[in-house]
């Protein structure tokens, strides 16, 4: 875990808090290409259509992929920074869905934009 990075730490705290708040003991672990991990609420992860498909499927028969069984997904072609930004977006989306009125800005650095666009396409977000 990238404990040094304050934003990532914040994300994790957020995830844990929201997980507790919703009384959901159902965290999901996302792993970036450099093996750094982010644990987040399953519902936040479900914002991505791709991740949602990975994790669904009837339990306890042959229809589950490894991801669903272990509760973790490894993204071999996504770097830690992008993944982190993605998870931030998951929470941003989760919080502001059904929101009325002007939305707070979701900051994206121009240099990360391309990577994020590709990730968004990949993750069906």
């Amino acid at each position: 875990m990238l404990a040094a990075d304050p934003t990532l730490k914040q994300t994790v705290v957020q995830a844990q808090a929201s997980a507790r708040a919703r009384n959901s003991m159902d965290p999901i672990k996302l792993i970036a290409s450099d093996d750094s991990e982010i644990i987040l609420d399953r519902r936040a992860a479900m914002v991505s259509g791709t991740i949602k498909n990975m994790l669904s499927g009837a339990p306890c028969d042959g229809s589950q992929f490894t991801e669903s069984q272990q509760g973790e997904v490894k993204f071999k072609e996504m770097n830690a920074a992008t993944l982190e930004k993605v998870v931030q977006y998951f929470y941003y989306k989760l919080r502001h869905t059904n929101h009325v009125g002007p939305l707070p800005e979701f900051k994206i650095e121009p240099e990360a934009a391309l990577e994020l666009l590709m990730a968004a396409n990949y993750l069906d977000t």
Binding site: M54, F65, E67, E77
Partner: peptide, 14 residues
């Protein structure tokens, strides 16, 4: 063959 448990979704999807 009803034997998907060894497969990684992420890998196949990718």
């Amino acid at each position: 063959r009803q034997n998907a448990s060894g497969l990684s979704f992420e890998e196949l999807y990718r």
